[in-house]
Design a protein around this nucleic acid. Sequence first.
DNA 1: TGCCAGGCCGGGT
DNA 2: ACCCGGCATGGC
Length: 221
Amino acid sequence: MRGRPESTIRVIYRKLLTAYGPQHWWPADSPLEVVIGAILTQNTGWKNVERAIDALKEAGCLSWHRLHNLTEEKLSDLIRSSGTYRVKAARIKAFVDALFRDHAGSLDAMLGGDLETARKRLLSIAGIGPETADAILLYAGGRLTFVVDAYTRRILRRHFLATPKDDYESIRQIFHKAAEPQEQIYNEYHALLVELGKRHCRPRAACDECPLRHLPHDPSL
DNA sequence: TGCCAGGCCGGGT
DNA sequence: ACCCGGCATGGC
């Protein structure tokens, strides 16, 4: 007796995990580093972000209180290597300000409680959009919310699981409905999609070794 | 040597 | 409701 066919979303997860193995995300030593990294990596390669985090570490500024007391100008200097550094300094400041103003400096408090409520709190901070909010909730807070990035959208379109008119929320719901609802799975799945994206969803990338090449897809997407 | 990266915001149609 | 430019460094 055959059960209901496994959804393509689950098949993709299995294939990626087999091909690449566990990714051990988020690449950070603490929830604080996850938050800072999530903001710094906006439209920026991770290498540049690592440098900026190293500089913050070197300067002894990787604590909420230190960040809170640092001037925005000084902060922007330290994170220069991550690009768009004035914008990002303001965004980190806005986050830290909200953390102390509304949650007495407790990240657990900020990320706790009802999920959608916590998510809306983050989205109300200037510079925290849906992807950054979900990354913080999942990787710093251990909350069950799927992170959708540009690679994820592109991969789903390639495999006819989404169309160009599907927005962030609709793609997020595709995963919430089809993937196994476990934090560990969401954690690994997003990381695996990024790995796939880096290897096969860039200009000049070859598809002949793509782990998903045997699934129905449109190579031109 | 250009083009691009694990977005987000604000202004113009 | 979309669409687009700005933000900016370092890697490939």
